[in-house]
């Protein structure tokens, strides 16, 4: 569902330890940058700087983990969806998120990292995933708010990634973006039904907006002046727009949608600036964001435990599949022999 600038300055801004850069390497790096500047795509077996590879592995795997963990808050409501129509939509959406995780793990693997390694990092709690999935979904309106706001923010962030310089990532993003547009629409439709419903339903919709608005803005990651690696990622064309630019676009697109619903964005400082043509909004509470990244969000522990449980509970399925494959192979050999 989403990738986010999750790494703090210290971790990410640290330069690779100084070592001798050979003349050949300098030439390769120059050639690499020329290709990127010319909008040529980089493919798995092409030469690439180590930092480029590392950055992509980190970003794509965090993105994949986010898709997988992102299935949990919504999965919570599948059995309690109010109608069959809503239920099949939610099922299809959660299944899509699982598929998106798989496309992205595959893309990460083209960079020389193994699937088991990546899953191991998620299960051990070492890997990061989007902060947004550490919030709970106590009401049905949360499913609407997630589709409308969280997927809306994800699409804003992901559409430029379709032009990422790394071929496999860009191709995975094209598929994901195509599939994700239904996610946002089903969420907005759900919000609309609640907003036009009874007073209690409308209150539920407003409550969900109140809880998801600020976390959605945080999805775009730290402000540009706090984000150390933006410049390099822009030069490598992994990133096309800054966090703040994308956040502004999201606010500009979403405020009128909230007005149409007759709901109020929970920001007293929100106002339209006729001169710039943009909405101005209040300051984001980055303490909350940082706490969640540190693992202290409302659901961090629950999410990882759910993934661990799913992995452990699925052990017999993996074992059975392996045994079954071995048996089929034996049978085929016997038949041939």
């Amino acid at each position: 569902m989403y990738t986010q600038g999750l790494d703090a300055k210290t971790e990410q801004g640290a330069q690779p330890s100084p070592r001798l850069v050979t003349e050949q390497e300098t030439a390769l790096q120059g050639r690499f940058q020329e290709r990127v500047d010319a909008e040529e795509k980089i493919e798995p077996r092409d030469w690439m700087p180590e930092g480029y590879r590392r950055t992509l592995v980190r970003q794509i795997s965090q993105h994949a983990h986010s898709e997988i963990v992102g299935m949990l808050p919504e999965g919570n409501w599948i059995t309690r969806a109010p109608t069959l129509r809503r239920k099949v939509a939610l099922l299809a959406k959660v299944q899509d998120e699982g598929g998106h995780g798989l496309y992205l793990y595959s893309a990460a693997e083209t960079l020389g990292v193994s699937r088991d390694e990546l899953i191991g990092q998620l299960l051990s709690g070492k890997a990061k995933y989007s902060s947004i999935f550490n919030y709970p979904t106590p009401t049905w309106a949360d499913i609407g708010a997630i589709g409308w706001l969280v997927d809306g923010a994800a699409i804003m962030n992901q559409v430029p990634l379709c032009r990422c310089s790394y071929g496999p990532y860009a191709r995975a993003m094209v598929r994901i973006c195509r599939e994700e547009s239904f996610h946002q629409r089903q969420g907005y439709e759900l919000m609309l039904a609640l907003a036009q419903g009874t007073a209690e339903q409308k209150r539920m919709a407003q409550d969900a907006l109140n809880r998801w608005w600020w976390p959605s803005l945080m999805m775009f990651g730290p402000s540009d002046n706090q984000s150390a690696h933006s410049a390099q990622n822009m030069a490598w064309k992994i990133k096309r727009f800054s966090n703040d630019e994308l956040r502004q676009r999201f606010v500009d697109a979403t405020v009128p949608q909230a007005e149409f619903l007759g709901l109020t964005i929970p920001d007293p400082e929100l106002r339209f600036n006729a001169e710039t043509g943009h909405y101005e909004f209040g300051a984001i509470d980055w303490t909350e964001f940082n706490e969640i990244l540190k693992g202290n969000g409302p659901c961090n522990r629950e999410r990882i435990e759910a993934r661990q449980k799913a992995w452990d509970d699925g052990a017999w399925v993996r074992e059975a599949a392996t045994a079954h494959a071995a048996k089929r192979k034996q049978r085929a050999l016997k038949k041939a022999g």
Binding site: Y103, R171, A321, H324, R328
Partner: peptide, 11 residues
């Protein structure tokens, strides 16, 4: 279109 891991070709 992409890749995946499986125990065998059928899977």
């Amino acid at each position: 279109v992409g890749s995946l891991h499986a125990a065998d070709a059928r899977m």
